[in-house]
């Protein structure tokens, strides 16, 4: 043992260094976000709960094409498409359930949707006491979509899926106008 290391162990220099670090951190700015009282600003591209969207005239966009069901890696989506009862030339989703207990929030379904009927929001705090509470039928998804319309549009814009809405120029995306109501 050298003289220096002996002095170090007598004077507790290593422990003093450690104490200095913790003492400095005592006065540092705290990183805690007091969640229910203060919330972080989420980015527009945040992949929260998935919602169904409507046209401006209130008509639901989904055409029941099954593409979201096909691409969903977690098999969380179930679509039953059918001919629209009022307009025989159009299809719609007779049943549409999204199981958020399985959903991995990857956003593939939103990319797959040719009519921008799906989008994602910044909602994330939707817990439930039952499993059934997290299996969302279409009306629930539409209601959530109505509530978070701005967020769903912002998501599509920031993910470059909004162009088709304005010009229809993006390849593979079709501009489906709402059904004319006469």
């Amino acid at each position: 043992m050298t003289f220096k290391s002996l002095m170090n162990s007598i004077l507790f220099t290593e422990i003093a260094q450690g104490l200095k670090v913790t003492f400095r951190h005592f006065f540092k700015k705290k990183l805690t976000v007091q969640y229910p009282h203060e919330k972080l600003t989420l980015a527009d591209g945040y992949r929260g709960f998935i919602v169904h969207r409507r046209y401006d005239n209130g008509q639901e966009r989904c055409v029941g094409c099954d593409l979201c069901e096909a691409i969903c890696p977690a098999k969380a989506i179930r679509v039953v498409g059918d001919i629209h009862p009022e307009f025989p030339e159009r299809r719609y989703a007779k049943e549409y359930t999204l199981d958020f207990t399985r959903c991995i929030f990857c956003g593939f379904c939103v990319v797959a949707c040719p009519v921008n009927a799906l989008s994602m929001t910044k909602e994330f705090a939707h817990s439930s006491f039952t499993r059934e509470g997290l299996i969302y039928p279409k009306d629930k998804l539409l209601a959530l979509g109505d509530r978070c319309e701005d967020e769903s549009i912002a998501y599509l814009k920031v993910r470059n899926m909004w162009d088709a809405e304005d010009s229809g120029k993006e390849e593979g995306r079709y501009h489906f106008p709402p059904i004319p109501t006469t």
Binding site: T22, L31, T32
Partner: peptide, 13 residues
């Protein structure tokens, strides 16, 4: 509180 502050947390609030 002291432990929290030294770990950059707030402790009980």
């Amino acid at each position: 509180k002291v432990l929290g502050f030294m770990q950059d947390r707030l402790g009980p609030m």
